[in-house]
Amino acid sequence: MKIKYPKSSPLVKIPEEAEFAIFIIRQELKSQKLTNSFDEMGFDGSICISDFSELIFSMIGLNDRSDEFYEWYVGQLNSFCKEVDLSDGTTLSKQAFDFYVHLLVEKRRKDVRK
């Protein structure tokens, strides 16, 4: 039997602190996508840059604030931005959630190494 779930109701309840983190990541992705788009057109997009990384790291519990980790974070952010279509909010939300999960996996990986 195939069950048809309504698209409007989530299958899992996301904790409030995760919802806020995903919201901030969503804003970070949107800003980075806009900046990257300006750069691709030949304009200086640096005016659009917002950096919520410290807030995101704190909310997730990522304690690695090294330059190396920040460079990894920006690389991942740019990677996730490639799939974002700003005219369609669903891709932005999906990428924000996926990036949140990706950061949690990296946090667990770092915690295991300690």
Rank of each mutant, 00 (worst) to 15 (best):
M1K: 09
I3E: 10
I3S: 09
K4T: 14
Y5C: 09
P6T: 11
S8H: 13
S9K: 14
L11I: 14
L11S: 12
V12P: 00
E17W: 13
E17Q: 15
A21P: 02
I25N: 01
L29P: 03
K30A: 12
S31N: 10
Q32D: 04
T35P: 01
F38C: 11
S46N: 11
F52I: 00
S53M: 08
S53W: 01
E54R: 04
E54P: 00
L55Q: 12
I56T: 06
I56R: 02
F57M: 11
M59D: 07
G61T: 09
D64T: 04
R65P: 00
R65E: 10
F69N: 05
Y73P: 02
V74C: 08
V74K: 14
G75V: 04
N78Q: 10
N78P: 00
N78V: 00
S79E: 10
C81D: 03
E83A: 15
L86C: 07
S87A: 14
D88Q: 10
G89M: 09
T91I: 07
S93R: 12
K94Q: 11
Q95K: 10
F97A: 11
F97G: 05
D98I: 04
F99Q: 07
Y100V: 05
V101S: 06
L103T: 03
L103W: 04
E106C: 05
K107I: 03
R108I: 11
R109A: 11
D111I: 03
D111K: 09
V112S: 08
R113E: 13
K114F: 05
K114G: 15
